[in-house]
Design a protein around this nucleic acid. Sequence first.
RNA 1: GGCCCCAUCGUCUAGCGGUCUAGGACGUCGCCCUUUCACGGCGAAAACACGGGUUCGAUUCCCGUUGGGGUCACCA
Length: 462
Amino acid sequence: MVTRFAPSPTGYLHIGGARTALFNFLYARHHGGAFKLRIEDTDRARMPEGATEAIFDALRWLGLDWDGDAIFQFARAKRHAEVARELLAKGGAYRCWMTAEQLAAGRAQAEAERRPFRLSSPWRDRDDGPADVPHVIRLRAPREGAVTIDDQVQGAVTVQNAELDDMVLLRSDGTPTYMLAVVVDDHDMAVTHVIRGDDHLNNAFRQLALIRALGWDEPVYAHVPLIHGPDGAKLSKRHGAIGAETYRDMGILPEALENYLLRLGWGHGDDEIISRAQAIEWFDLDGVGRAPARLDAKKLENINGHYLRAADDRRLAELTAPLIAAALARDLDAAERDLLLRSMPDLKARAKDLNELAASSLFLFRTRPIPLDERAQKLLEPPASDLLSQARGALAASTDWSGPALEAAVRELAERLGLGLGKIAQPLRAALTGSSTSPGIFDVLAVLGRDESLGRIDDQLR
RNA sequence: GGCCCCAUCGUCUAGCGGUCUAGGACGUCGCCCUUUCACGGCGAAAACACGGGUUCGAUUCCCGUUGGGGUCACCA
Protein backbone atom coordinates (compact mmCIF):
# COMPACT_ATOMS: atom_id res chain seq x y z
CA MET A 1 0.00 0.00 0.00
CA VAL A 2 1.09 3.55 -0.70
CA THR A 3 0.07 6.82 0.94
CA ARG A 4 1.08 10.28 -0.04
CA PHE A 5 1.24 13.83 1.15
CA ALA A 6 0.68 16.40 -1.56
CA PRO A 7 1.11 19.98 -0.35
CA SER A 8 1.14 22.99 -2.57
CA PRO A 9 4.14 25.19 -1.85
CA THR A 10 2.72 28.28 -0.23
CA GLY A 11 5.81 29.29 1.69
CA TYR A 12 5.37 27.19 4.80
CA LEU A 13 4.01 23.85 5.93
CA HIS A 14 0.48 24.48 7.14
CA ILE A 15 -0.08 23.00 10.58
CA GLY A 16 -3.07 21.10 9.25
CA GLY A 17 -0.90 19.81 6.46
CA ALA A 18 1.63 18.68 9.01
CA ARG A 19 -1.03 16.60 10.68
CA THR A 20 -2.17 15.20 7.34
CA ALA A 21 1.42 14.28 6.58
CA LEU A 22 1.76 12.66 9.99
CA PHE A 23 -1.38 10.58 9.49
CA ASN A 24 -0.19 9.46 6.06
CA PHE A 25 3.22 8.65 7.42
CA LEU A 26 1.90 6.72 10.40
CA TYR A 27 -0.63 4.83 8.34
CA ALA A 28 1.99 3.76 5.83
CA ARG A 29 4.45 2.71 8.52
CA HIS A 30 1.76 0.89 10.45
CA HIS A 31 0.85 -1.15 7.42
CA GLY A 32 4.35 -1.58 6.14
CA GLY A 33 3.66 0.51 3.05
CA ALA A 34 5.32 3.50 1.44
CA PHE A 35 4.80 7.17 2.24
CA LYS A 36 5.39 9.43 -0.74
CA LEU A 37 5.67 13.14 -1.19
CA ARG A 38 4.40 15.16 -4.10
CA ILE A 39 4.76 18.90 -4.48
CA GLU A 40 1.76 20.42 -6.23
CA ASP A 41 3.62 23.27 -7.79
CA THR A 42 1.51 23.90 -10.85
CA ASP A 43 0.39 27.34 -9.78
CA ARG A 44 3.70 28.98 -10.55
CA ALA A 45 2.48 32.50 -10.07
CA ARG A 46 1.46 31.94 -6.49
CA MET A 47 4.61 30.13 -5.49
CA PRO A 48 6.94 32.14 -3.26
CA GLU A 49 10.69 31.77 -3.49
CA GLY A 50 12.00 28.87 -1.44
CA ALA A 51 8.51 27.53 -0.78
CA THR A 52 9.42 23.97 -1.65
CA GLU A 53 12.47 23.99 0.58
CA ALA A 54 10.33 25.30 3.42
CA ILE A 55 8.14 22.24 3.14
CA PHE A 56 11.07 19.87 2.97
CA ASP A 57 12.63 21.52 6.00
CA ALA A 58 9.50 21.36 8.09
CA LEU A 59 8.89 17.74 7.18
CA ARG A 60 12.46 16.82 8.02
CA TRP A 61 12.25 18.74 11.26
CA LEU A 62 9.25 16.65 12.21
CA GLY A 63 11.03 13.51 11.14
CA LEU A 64 8.40 12.62 8.58
CA ASP A 65 10.71 11.04 6.06
CA TRP A 66 9.16 10.24 2.74
CA ASP A 67 10.05 7.29 0.59
CA GLY A 68 11.85 7.91 -2.67
CA ASP A 69 12.26 11.28 -4.33
CA ALA A 70 9.62 13.94 -4.06
CA ILE A 71 7.51 14.22 -7.21
CA PHE A 72 7.04 17.64 -8.73
CA GLN A 73 3.69 17.99 -10.37
CA PHE A 74 4.60 20.82 -12.69
CA ALA A 75 7.25 18.69 -14.35
CA ARG A 76 4.64 16.13 -15.27
CA ALA A 77 2.37 18.44 -17.24
CA LYS A 78 3.07 16.65 -20.52
CA ARG A 79 2.00 13.35 -19.08
CA HIS A 80 -1.17 14.92 -17.71
CA ALA A 81 -2.04 16.42 -21.07
CA GLU A 82 -1.37 13.14 -22.75
CA VAL A 83 -3.87 11.39 -20.51
CA ALA A 84 -6.45 14.04 -21.26
CA ARG A 85 -5.95 13.57 -25.01
CA GLU A 86 -6.26 9.82 -24.66
CA LEU A 87 -9.48 10.23 -22.82
CA LEU A 88 -10.66 12.63 -25.49
CA ALA A 89 -9.87 10.06 -28.15
CA LYS A 90 -11.80 7.43 -26.22
CA GLY A 91 -14.80 9.70 -25.94
CA GLY A 92 -14.56 10.16 -22.18
CA ALA A 93 -13.89 13.85 -22.63
CA TYR A 94 -14.82 16.54 -25.10
CA ARG A 95 -13.63 19.85 -26.43
CA CYS A 96 -15.52 22.85 -25.16
CA TRP A 97 -15.40 26.28 -26.72
CA MET A 98 -17.44 28.09 -24.12
CA THR A 99 -15.83 31.38 -23.21
CA ALA A 100 -15.16 32.81 -19.79
CA GLU A 101 -17.81 35.43 -20.54
CA GLN A 102 -20.41 32.82 -21.34
CA LEU A 103 -19.63 30.97 -18.16
CA ALA A 104 -19.76 34.15 -16.11
CA ALA A 105 -23.08 35.10 -17.66
CA GLY A 106 -24.49 31.69 -16.83
CA ARG A 107 -23.37 31.99 -13.25
CA ALA A 108 -24.72 35.49 -12.92
CA GLN A 109 -28.08 34.43 -14.24
CA ALA A 110 -28.22 31.43 -11.95
CA GLU A 111 -27.44 33.68 -9.04
CA ALA A 112 -30.09 36.18 -10.06
CA GLU A 113 -32.67 33.42 -10.21
CA ARG A 114 -31.42 32.11 -6.90
CA ARG A 115 -30.86 28.64 -8.21
CA PRO A 116 -27.62 26.66 -8.30
CA PHE A 117 -25.50 27.02 -11.38
CA ARG A 118 -25.16 23.83 -13.36
CA LEU A 119 -22.85 23.92 -16.28
CA SER A 120 -24.36 22.56 -19.43
CA SER A 121 -21.99 22.88 -22.33
CA PRO A 122 -23.47 22.85 -25.78
CA TRP A 123 -20.24 21.21 -26.90
CA ARG A 124 -20.77 18.06 -24.91
CA ASP A 125 -22.45 16.40 -27.87
CA ARG A 126 -20.80 18.04 -30.82
CA ASP A 127 -17.25 18.35 -31.98
CA ASP A 128 -17.39 20.85 -34.80
CA GLY A 129 -15.87 23.82 -33.10
CA PRO A 130 -13.09 25.79 -34.73
CA ALA A 131 -9.94 23.78 -33.99
CA ASP A 132 -7.70 26.82 -34.18
CA VAL A 133 -9.66 28.71 -31.55
CA PRO A 134 -8.59 28.09 -27.94
CA HIS A 135 -10.79 25.61 -26.12
CA VAL A 136 -10.69 23.47 -23.03
CA ILE A 137 -11.10 19.75 -22.65
CA ARG A 138 -13.82 18.71 -20.26
CA LEU A 139 -14.64 15.40 -18.67
CA ARG A 140 -17.84 13.87 -20.02
CA ALA A 141 -19.16 13.07 -16.55
CA PRO A 142 -22.17 10.85 -15.96
CA ARG A 143 -25.37 12.80 -15.41
CA GLU A 144 -27.57 10.07 -14.04
CA GLY A 145 -27.28 8.12 -10.85
CA ALA A 146 -25.14 8.70 -7.83
CA VAL A 147 -21.71 7.84 -6.51
CA THR A 148 -20.98 6.56 -3.04
CA ILE A 149 -17.56 6.75 -1.50
CA ASP A 150 -16.85 4.48 1.40
CA ASP A 151 -14.66 6.96 3.18
CA GLN A 152 -12.52 5.48 5.94
CA VAL A 153 -13.16 8.44 8.19
CA GLN A 154 -16.45 9.94 7.06
CA GLY A 155 -18.24 6.69 6.36
CA ALA A 156 -20.41 6.16 3.29
CA VAL A 157 -20.97 9.46 1.51
CA THR A 158 -23.25 9.69 -1.50
CA VAL A 159 -23.48 12.45 -4.05
CA GLN A 160 -25.84 12.66 -7.00
CA ASN A 161 -24.07 12.84 -10.33
CA ALA A 162 -26.41 15.65 -11.27
CA GLU A 163 -24.60 17.75 -8.66
CA LEU A 164 -21.31 17.39 -10.46
CA ASP A 165 -20.58 19.13 -13.71
CA ASP A 166 -18.15 18.48 -16.48
CA MET A 167 -14.92 19.72 -15.01
CA VAL A 168 -12.10 21.13 -17.06
CA LEU A 169 -9.22 18.72 -17.53
CA LEU A 170 -7.03 20.72 -19.87
CA ARG A 171 -7.11 24.48 -19.96
CA SER A 172 -7.32 26.41 -23.17
CA ASP A 173 -3.57 27.04 -22.98
CA GLY A 174 -3.02 23.30 -22.84
CA THR A 175 -2.01 23.12 -19.19
CA PRO A 176 -3.60 20.51 -16.96
CA THR A 177 -5.91 21.40 -14.10
CA TYR A 178 -5.41 20.27 -10.55
CA MET A 179 -8.15 17.65 -10.82
CA LEU A 180 -6.46 15.98 -13.76
CA ALA A 181 -2.99 16.23 -12.32
CA VAL A 182 -3.96 14.70 -8.99
CA VAL A 183 -5.66 11.73 -10.55
CA VAL A 184 -2.85 11.04 -12.98
CA ASP A 185 -0.12 11.48 -10.40
CA ASP A 186 -1.82 9.34 -7.79
CA HIS A 187 -2.22 6.64 -10.39
CA ASP A 188 1.33 6.85 -11.66
CA MET A 189 2.67 6.92 -8.12
CA ALA A 190 0.59 3.82 -7.36
CA VAL A 191 -1.12 5.55 -4.47
CA THR A 192 -3.61 3.21 -2.83
CA HIS A 193 -4.78 5.35 0.09
CA VAL A 194 -5.65 9.01 -0.22
CA ILE A 195 -5.64 10.55 3.26
CA ARG A 196 -6.20 14.31 3.17
CA GLY A 197 -8.18 17.19 4.62
CA ASP A 198 -11.92 16.97 4.24
CA ASP A 199 -11.94 20.17 2.24
CA HIS A 200 -11.21 17.70 -0.55
CA LEU A 201 -14.18 15.47 0.10
CA ASN A 202 -16.22 17.10 -2.65
CA ASN A 203 -13.28 16.85 -5.00
CA ALA A 204 -13.12 13.13 -4.40
CA PHE A 205 -16.33 12.62 -6.31
CA ARG A 206 -15.07 14.54 -9.32
CA GLN A 207 -11.77 12.76 -9.24
CA LEU A 208 -13.48 9.44 -8.93
CA ALA A 209 -15.53 10.20 -12.03
CA LEU A 210 -12.30 10.79 -13.91
CA ILE A 211 -10.69 7.67 -12.52
CA ARG A 212 -13.65 5.61 -13.64
CA ALA A 213 -13.61 7.19 -17.08
CA LEU A 214 -9.97 6.22 -17.32
CA GLY A 215 -10.69 2.73 -16.08
CA TRP A 216 -8.08 2.96 -13.35
CA ASP A 217 -8.08 1.43 -9.89
CA GLU A 218 -9.88 3.47 -7.28
CA PRO A 219 -7.95 4.45 -4.18
CA VAL A 220 -9.27 4.12 -0.66
CA TYR A 221 -10.27 7.56 0.60
CA ALA A 222 -9.98 8.99 4.08
CA HIS A 223 -10.96 12.61 4.58
CA VAL A 224 -9.74 14.02 7.85
CA PRO A 225 -11.54 17.00 9.42
CA LEU A 226 -9.71 20.29 9.27
CA ILE A 227 -8.02 21.97 12.19
CA HIS A 228 -9.74 25.07 13.47
CA GLY A 229 -8.53 28.06 15.41
CA PRO A 230 -9.46 28.56 19.09
CA ASP A 231 -12.57 30.42 17.94
CA GLY A 232 -13.85 27.50 15.94
CA ALA A 233 -13.31 29.10 12.56
CA LYS A 234 -11.14 27.62 9.88
CA LEU A 235 -7.51 28.17 10.68
CA SER A 236 -6.17 31.18 8.86
CA LYS A 237 -3.41 33.74 9.03
CA ARG A 238 -5.23 35.86 11.54
CA HIS A 239 -4.98 33.02 14.05
CA GLY A 240 -1.24 33.57 14.08
CA ALA A 241 0.78 30.40 14.02
CA ILE A 242 -0.35 28.34 11.05
CA GLY A 243 3.05 27.26 9.75
CA ALA A 244 4.74 24.29 11.39
CA GLU A 245 8.02 26.18 11.38
CA THR A 246 6.48 28.88 13.53
CA TYR A 247 6.20 26.32 16.28
CA ARG A 248 9.84 25.51 15.91
CA ASP A 249 10.60 29.21 16.35
CA MET A 250 8.38 29.22 19.41
CA GLY A 251 10.70 26.67 20.95
CA ILE A 252 8.45 23.68 20.50
CA LEU A 253 10.20 20.33 20.19
CA PRO A 254 9.23 18.35 17.08
CA GLU A 255 8.23 15.29 19.06
CA ALA A 256 5.95 17.47 21.19
CA LEU A 257 4.25 18.95 18.13
CA GLU A 258 3.89 15.48 16.67
CA ASN A 259 2.31 14.13 19.85
CA TYR A 260 -0.02 17.09 20.05
CA LEU A 261 -1.05 16.83 16.41
CA LEU A 262 -1.55 13.11 16.72
CA ARG A 263 -4.01 13.59 19.57
CA LEU A 264 -5.84 16.33 17.70
CA GLY A 265 -8.60 14.43 16.01
CA TRP A 266 -7.34 11.00 16.91
CA GLY A 267 -7.48 9.08 20.12
CA HIS A 268 -6.35 5.81 21.58
CA GLY A 269 -8.22 5.31 24.83
CA ASP A 270 -6.90 7.53 27.58
CA ASP A 271 -3.38 7.67 26.22
CA GLU A 272 -1.90 11.15 26.01
CA ILE A 273 1.86 10.84 25.76
CA ILE A 274 2.55 8.63 22.81
CA SER A 275 5.95 7.89 21.33
CA ARG A 276 6.61 7.61 17.61
CA ALA A 277 7.02 3.84 17.89
CA GLN A 278 3.81 3.54 19.85
CA ALA A 279 2.00 5.74 17.36
CA ILE A 280 3.07 3.55 14.47
CA GLU A 281 1.83 0.53 16.33
CA TRP A 282 -1.50 2.07 17.29
CA PHE A 283 -2.43 4.41 14.49
CA ASP A 284 -5.30 3.51 12.28
CA LEU A 285 -8.01 5.40 10.47
CA ASP A 286 -10.86 4.16 12.65
CA GLY A 287 -9.51 6.20 15.52
CA VAL A 288 -9.82 9.45 13.60
CA GLY A 289 -12.72 11.62 14.72
CA ARG A 290 -15.14 13.23 12.30
CA ALA A 291 -15.54 16.62 13.92
CA PRO A 292 -13.07 19.44 13.35
CA ALA A 293 -10.72 20.06 16.28
CA ARG A 294 -9.57 23.37 17.69
CA LEU A 295 -5.99 24.26 18.31
CA ASP A 296 -5.17 24.63 22.01
CA ALA A 297 -1.90 26.41 22.66
CA LYS A 298 -1.96 25.59 26.37
CA LYS A 299 -2.12 21.90 25.78
CA LEU A 300 0.69 22.03 23.25
CA GLU A 301 2.70 23.98 25.80
CA ASN A 302 2.05 21.38 28.44
CA ILE A 303 3.06 18.52 26.19
CA ASN A 304 6.14 20.43 25.14
CA GLY A 305 7.10 20.84 28.78
CA HIS A 306 6.82 17.12 29.20
CA TYR A 307 9.10 16.39 26.27
CA LEU A 308 11.50 19.09 27.34
CA ARG A 309 11.93 17.45 30.73
CA ALA A 310 12.43 14.10 29.06
CA ALA A 311 14.88 15.38 26.46
CA ASP A 312 18.59 14.68 26.45
CA ASP A 313 20.64 17.42 28.13
CA ARG A 314 23.25 17.58 25.41
CA ARG A 315 20.62 17.98 22.73
CA LEU A 316 18.88 20.74 24.66
CA ALA A 317 22.16 22.51 25.26
CA GLU A 318 22.87 22.48 21.54
CA LEU A 319 19.39 23.71 20.72
CA THR A 320 19.56 26.46 23.31
CA ALA A 321 23.10 27.74 22.74
CA PRO A 322 22.27 29.74 19.60
CA LEU A 323 19.33 31.38 21.35
CA ILE A 324 21.53 32.35 24.25
CA ALA A 325 24.19 33.65 21.91
CA ALA A 326 21.61 35.81 20.21
CA ALA A 327 20.40 37.25 23.51
CA LEU A 328 23.95 37.89 24.67
CA ALA A 329 25.09 39.12 21.28
CA ARG A 330 28.13 36.92 21.59
CA ASP A 331 28.96 33.25 21.27
CA LEU A 332 29.47 30.97 24.22
CA ASP A 333 32.96 29.67 24.81
CA ALA A 334 33.74 26.07 25.64
CA ALA A 335 33.60 26.62 29.39
CA GLU A 336 30.24 28.30 29.10
CA ARG A 337 28.89 25.53 26.93
CA ASP A 338 29.96 23.12 29.59
CA LEU A 339 28.30 25.24 32.24
CA LEU A 340 25.09 25.21 30.20
CA LEU A 341 25.23 21.46 29.88
CA ARG A 342 25.80 20.96 33.58
CA SER A 343 22.95 23.27 34.45
CA MET A 344 20.54 21.70 32.01
CA PRO A 345 18.95 19.19 34.39
CA ASP A 346 17.91 22.03 36.69
CA LEU A 347 16.96 24.38 33.89
CA LYS A 348 14.83 22.09 31.77
CA ALA A 349 12.63 21.10 34.68
CA ARG A 350 11.04 24.54 34.71
CA ALA A 351 10.79 25.59 31.08
CA LYS A 352 7.91 24.99 28.73
CA ASP A 353 9.73 25.86 25.54
CA LEU A 354 13.27 26.42 24.28
CA ASN A 355 12.97 30.18 24.38
CA GLU A 356 12.08 30.07 28.04
CA LEU A 357 14.87 27.63 28.60
CA ALA A 358 17.35 30.00 26.99
CA ALA A 359 16.02 32.99 28.90
CA SER A 360 16.19 31.18 32.21
CA SER A 361 19.82 30.25 31.61
CA LEU A 362 21.03 33.75 30.87
CA PHE A 363 22.04 34.48 34.45
CA LEU A 364 24.76 31.86 34.11
CA PHE A 365 26.57 33.89 31.49
CA ARG A 366 26.21 37.42 32.76
CA THR A 367 29.41 39.18 33.63
CA ARG A 368 29.77 40.78 37.03
CA PRO A 369 28.25 42.80 38.32
CA ILE A 370 25.15 41.10 37.01
CA PRO A 371 22.00 43.16 36.33
CA LEU A 372 19.13 42.81 38.79
CA ASP A 373 15.50 42.88 37.86
CA GLU A 374 12.98 44.80 39.91
CA ARG A 375 12.00 41.97 42.19
CA ALA A 376 15.58 40.99 42.80
CA GLN A 377 16.36 44.53 43.87
CA LYS A 378 13.49 44.43 46.28
CA LEU A 379 14.74 41.19 47.77
CA LEU A 380 18.06 42.83 48.53
CA GLU A 381 16.74 45.82 50.41
CA PRO A 382 18.21 46.58 53.86
CA PRO A 383 17.05 43.87 56.25
CA ALA A 384 18.06 41.28 53.68
CA SER A 385 21.54 42.56 53.04
CA ASP A 386 22.62 41.72 56.52
CA LEU A 387 21.35 38.18 56.04
CA LEU A 388 23.16 38.01 52.73
CA SER A 389 26.34 38.98 54.44
CA GLN A 390 25.92 36.26 57.03
CA ALA A 391 25.08 33.76 54.33
CA ARG A 392 28.25 34.70 52.54
CA GLY A 393 30.18 33.94 55.67
CA ALA A 394 28.56 30.55 56.08
CA LEU A 395 29.18 29.67 52.45
CA ALA A 396 32.76 30.84 52.43
CA ALA A 397 33.42 28.78 55.51
CA SER A 398 32.31 25.60 53.80
CA THR A 399 35.26 23.47 52.78
CA ASP A 400 33.12 21.49 50.40
CA TRP A 401 31.57 23.53 47.59
CA SER A 402 28.83 21.08 46.70
CA GLY A 403 25.07 21.47 46.74
CA PRO A 404 24.38 19.30 49.77
CA ALA A 405 27.25 20.75 51.80
CA LEU A 406 26.24 24.32 51.02
CA GLU A 407 22.64 23.56 51.84
CA ALA A 408 23.68 22.15 55.20
CA ALA A 409 25.67 25.27 55.92
CA VAL A 410 22.85 27.63 55.05
CA ARG A 411 20.23 25.59 56.86
CA GLU A 412 22.37 25.67 59.94
CA LEU A 413 22.59 29.44 59.68
CA ALA A 414 18.84 29.76 59.25
CA GLU A 415 18.23 27.60 62.24
CA ARG A 416 20.68 29.55 64.35
CA LEU A 417 18.89 32.77 63.41
CA GLY A 418 15.49 31.19 63.91
CA LEU A 419 14.48 31.97 60.33
CA GLY A 420 12.87 30.06 57.54
CA LEU A 421 15.22 29.02 54.80
CA GLY A 422 13.40 31.24 52.35
CA LYS A 423 14.44 34.36 54.22
CA ILE A 424 18.02 33.63 53.33
CA ALA A 425 17.55 31.80 50.08
CA GLN A 426 15.67 34.59 48.35
CA PRO A 427 18.28 37.34 48.84
CA LEU A 428 20.89 34.81 47.83
CA ARG A 429 18.93 34.01 44.71
CA ALA A 430 18.63 37.67 43.86
CA ALA A 431 22.35 38.24 44.24
CA LEU A 432 23.33 35.12 42.31
CA THR A 433 20.83 35.19 39.48
CA GLY A 434 19.54 38.75 39.40
CA SER A 435 16.06 37.33 39.52
CA SER A 436 13.45 36.19 42.01
CA THR A 437 13.01 32.84 40.34
CA SER A 438 15.63 30.30 39.38
CA PRO A 439 16.59 26.67 39.82
CA GLY A 440 17.22 25.49 43.36
CA ILE A 441 19.61 27.95 44.92
CA PHE A 442 22.11 25.30 46.05
CA ASP A 443 22.23 23.92 42.55
CA VAL A 444 22.94 27.40 41.30
CA LEU A 445 25.72 27.83 43.83
CA ALA A 446 27.29 24.53 42.86
CA VAL A 447 27.11 25.13 39.16
CA LEU A 448 28.39 28.69 39.35
CA GLY A 449 31.38 27.69 41.47
CA ARG A 450 32.91 29.24 44.56
CA ASP A 451 34.65 32.26 43.09
CA GLU A 452 31.83 33.39 40.87
CA SER A 453 29.21 32.82 43.56
CA LEU A 454 31.08 34.68 46.25
CA GLY A 455 31.94 37.41 43.78
CA ARG A 456 28.31 37.95 42.83
CA ILE A 457 27.35 38.13 46.47
CA ASP A 458 30.11 40.62 47.20
CA ASP A 459 28.90 42.80 44.36
CA GLN A 460 25.63 43.23 46.25
CA LEU A 461 27.29 43.78 49.60
CA ARG A 462 29.20 46.86 48.56
C1' G B 1 -28.29 29.70 -1.32
C1' G B 2 -27.41 24.18 -3.47
C1' C B 3 -24.71 19.94 -2.09
C1' C B 4 -21.79 17.32 1.58
C1' C B 5 -19.99 16.57 6.60
C1' C B 6 -20.19 17.19 11.87
C1' A B 7 -22.34 17.69 17.22
C1' U B 8 -19.90 14.37 25.07
C1' C B 9 -16.97 19.19 30.33
C1' G B 10 -14.07 26.00 28.11
C1' U B 11 -10.54 22.72 24.82
C1' C B 12 -8.64 17.65 23.01
C1' U B 13 -11.04 13.23 23.77
C1' A B 14 -12.92 7.88 26.09
C1' G B 15 -17.64 5.74 25.33
C1' C B 16 -19.04 1.59 19.97
C1' G B 17 -27.82 -0.21 23.87
C1' G B 18 -27.73 -1.72 30.01
C1' U B 19 -20.77 -1.61 33.17
C1' C B 20 -22.63 6.16 32.84
C1' U B 21 -24.57 8.75 39.85
C1' A B 22 -20.45 9.64 31.80
C1' G B 23 -13.78 8.24 32.35
C1' G B 24 -8.86 10.66 31.07
C1' A B 25 -5.86 14.98 29.60
C1' C B 26 -5.10 20.44 29.11
C1' G B 27 -6.96 24.76 31.29
C1' U B 28 -9.42 26.80 35.89
C1' C B 29 -9.98 26.77 41.41
C1' G B 30 -8.54 24.81 46.31
C1' C B 31 -5.00 21.99 49.42
C1' C B 32 -0.19 19.48 50.02
C1' C B 33 5.11 19.36 48.92
C1' U B 34 8.59 23.57 49.07
C1' U B 35 14.36 28.21 49.31
C1' U B 36 11.65 30.96 44.44
C1' C B 37 9.61 29.24 39.92
C1' A B 38 8.33 24.91 37.87
C1' C B 39 7.50 19.67 38.59
C1' G B 40 4.80 16.28 41.42
C1' G B 41 0.62 14.60 44.70
C1' C B 42 -4.51 15.10 46.39
C1' G B 43 -9.27 17.24 45.63
C1' A B 44 -13.23 20.43 43.32
C1' A B 45 -16.24 22.84 39.70
C1' A B 46 -17.22 21.53 34.56
C1' A B 47 -20.42 17.96 29.17
C1' C B 48 -24.01 13.79 26.50
C1' A B 49 -27.31 20.85 21.80
C1' C B 50 -32.87 20.34 21.45
C1' G B 51 -37.37 17.60 19.99
C1' G B 52 -39.48 13.26 18.30
C1' G B 53 -39.24 8.15 17.53
C1' U B 54 -37.11 2.61 17.86
C1' U B 55 -36.36 -0.41 22.29
C1' C B 56 -37.79 -3.50 28.37
C1' G B 57 -33.74 0.18 28.29
C1' A B 58 -30.63 5.28 24.97
C1' U B 59 -24.73 9.38 25.34
C1' U B 60 -24.78 5.22 22.10
C1' C B 61 -29.65 3.46 16.51
C1' C B 62 -33.30 6.46 13.13
C1' C B 63 -35.74 11.22 11.77
C1' G B 64 -36.25 16.37 12.35
C1' U B 65 -34.74 21.21 14.48
C1' U B 66 -30.86 24.22 15.89
C1' G B 67 -25.85 25.25 15.72
C1' G B 68 -20.97 24.62 13.49
C1' G B 69 -17.86 23.33 9.31
C1' G B 70 -16.51 22.22 4.21
C1' U B 71 -17.37 22.99 -0.93
C1' C B 72 -19.45 25.03 -5.17
C1' A B 73 -13.05 28.23 -10.88
C1' C B 74 -9.77 27.37 -17.33
C1' C B 75 -6.76 27.98 -7.89
C1' A B 76 -4.70 24.13 -5.65
